[in-house]
Design a protein around this nucleic acid. Structure first.
Lengths: 225, 225, 225, 225
DNA sequence: GATGAATGAGCCTTCATTCAT
DNA sequence: AATGAATGAAGGCTCATTCAT
């Protein structure tokens, strides 16, 4: 027996149905794959929370977009808020990859800063869905704010500072300069990599171009003491 | 003052507004009452929207905080969304005051940039309620995003550029440097004046100190060509 | 304009509508009469809780039966449970009328007991909706159980004892006999006036006949010491 | 033992049962497992239905308390309601043991009645879980009400009457007196053995003491004609 | 005009039941 | 045969909005 489920955007249902019958004759919607389903829900929630906001997103929408039942959200994550937490945790755990592992050191300080900003601006853009969500929630929930502060700017600034320190030999860089520059770079990447292109609708290429130019100014400013 | 209301289903605002002014010849006491109540509602909404988010704020809360009836929101602003628009319009109209009117030119470029950043960081903090609301809505509504882009970074960067150009005589500043620096300063003020202290919970004084230090680096970077 | 509401069991809507237009042209469902509406909700809830049980009764049903919106239950009574409490309180306050005010003393002890049981059995029947609800809830909630104990058997037994004491002159009735008889009468009225006819479906007349016969036996049992 | 299941849409139970027994020749160990699990489910359900009510009890709770899977309820009993019926049937079949088998006749009428009430009050207390459930359901379902009436008061009153008739030799007891007294005793045992201690929270000992005192009054009332 | 009582659409959540494993 | 993952139909409740007063 085959319980036929009617998807709203059913285009080539016939084909998939045929295939289904041929291979397993099992309703794929009911196949058990908890891990995959959890992931689908987290992904759907990330997108929807980011674009409509947390409050305006309904659990029905999330279920629909993830291609599974609404009730699963409550079974797996203990409700909508639990899903939000899962979304955030999930992202963090995937972001353990650090600057140091993905970016070779540059010969010159100027090239180093340019490279850092270029890479980080792209990374911000990639993370735009998650950043949108984080910024939104951080505005409403001090808990999230604290988490965002530590996971975001603070962590990034430290990583940047670490790299800048490698160029101390050739330049006179005191600790304060390094700290200041690191925080500035972190802030600029956030604005030119995320806020401007992903929130305010600036042209992405243009935004990045400005960022790279700023890198030059900062590099020059640091070299001159 | 003119609180411009932007309803979606509204074509010629000018006409209806003119008509309104022409015909409504109610006694001035009443008008004052109404104006006061509108202002109270707008103020209450600004605070609540900023702290709880737009969706999570109920019209009843707004009415209660403004000390008047819930129904008035619909009579005056045609619903919750209308009130949101009024909130944004109201703020803009009060922010016509420009940099040039409040800030004397400085003798040196370094002092100029330091002064600009210091002043603008404070201004961002003052406007934090409005900025929070704007950022939130800009993330969800492209219309608001466009408005925020033009009213915010673009406008600010132009104002900053104008001031930097005054120092061309003493320094070799090409147009691109000026544009880059202006945008960088604008971005840094947003982060160190608003995002960090008002959203992420950084200590305000500390945040501003970093900003002022960055000013120095940028000034040096510009002077060296 | 006339917002026509479609009742499910609309029989003679035409008539009522015509009448409406003729007299006030005001949707009667929206007329403001909070007291009446609260009463209607309490009444509807009493009936439905009694017949379907508390859990199985939906707030929607209650609203429909009371002829008003579901949301009112939450506005007036702070939810379904609040309505339950209101139902119980409401009944108590109407039951201040005591035995003494409605029943003249009888000449003989036998007649007194017969009269007491007859009257109380009828009263139990009248209160059957409320009793059903009380018994149901008392089984699940110790708070309600305590309330039911004090408001029910304990109070009733005291009132009965008071009346029996009036016949001490003619009979040798010690305190224990009076207490025992009072409690027995109270218990028998509960069973023959409520449990048997209203819960178990015994024929009501027959049930009462047995009760009255028991009265005789008890009266004889008391007279003989 | 045969747990008779009363499904609404079920015609010839006997046939299907017979067939079941005939065909299912599974190994005895398995059968024992199943029987044990059924019993565990019935026991768990009795407790939970009695304490939380039928509606408020979830099948998951029952499964958990019985130490087996939720789905078994549907496999064994065809759903939650089927389990309820099984619970009731199961109890009845264990209650075939009658007064006569457990209680010797007394010499005097007074002693007989005292003994009857004492025994039956204790029995009601033992059965409190089942009685709670029965009373609850009888209030909502006429079918259960009918069943409860016949299995409960009617059956009990008959058994009591039978015993009282043994004392006719020494006392003038007409049929009506016997019927009246039997029903009264049955009712009093229900109240003093179950309703008061198990539902309303009266102290159990005290409740029984009153019952025994009532026995005396009734006995005296019967002896005097 | 101002008020707040009333509405009803829709949200999050629960749970009996089904069914792939 | 047993499990528990998955479903979907409600249920209680909230809230923007309407409208009698």
């Amino acid at each position: 027996m085959l319980t036929c489920r009617l998807a709203k955007t059913q285009s080539t249902n016939m084909q998939s149905l045929a295939k289904q019958i041929a291979t397993t004759a099992v309703d794929p919607a009911r196949r058990r794959d908890r891990a995959a389903r959890e992931q689908a829900l987290i992904l759907a929630a990330t997108k929807l929370f980011a674009s409509h906001g947390y409050e305006a997103t309904t659990t029905r929408e999330i279920g629909a977009r993830a291609g599974c039942s609404e009730g699963l959200i409550h079974r797996y994550f203990k409700g909508k808020e639990g899903l939000l937490l899962a979304v955030m945790s999930s992202h963090i755990s995937r972001r353990v990859l650090e600057l140091r592992e993905h970016l070779p050191f540059s010969a010159s300080l100027e090239e180093e800063i340019r490279q850092l900003m270029s890479w980080e601006v792209d990374r911000m853009w990639e993370d735009r869905d998650f950043l949108r969500l984080t910024v939104q929630r951080a505005m409403l929930d001090p808990k999230i704010a604290r988490f965002a502060r530590l996971e975001g700017p603070t962590r990034l600034a430290k990583a940047i500072a670490e790299r800048l320190r490698h160029h101390r030999n050739h330049h006179v860089l005191d600790d304060e300069d390094i700290e200041t520059a690191s925080n500035a770079i972190s802030a600029l990447c956030f604005v030119f990599g995320f806020m401007r292109p992903a929130v305010l609708g600036y042209h992405r290429k243009e935004s990045k171009r400005v960022a790279v130019n700023v890198a030059k100014i900062i590099a020059r400013g640091l070299q001159l003491t």
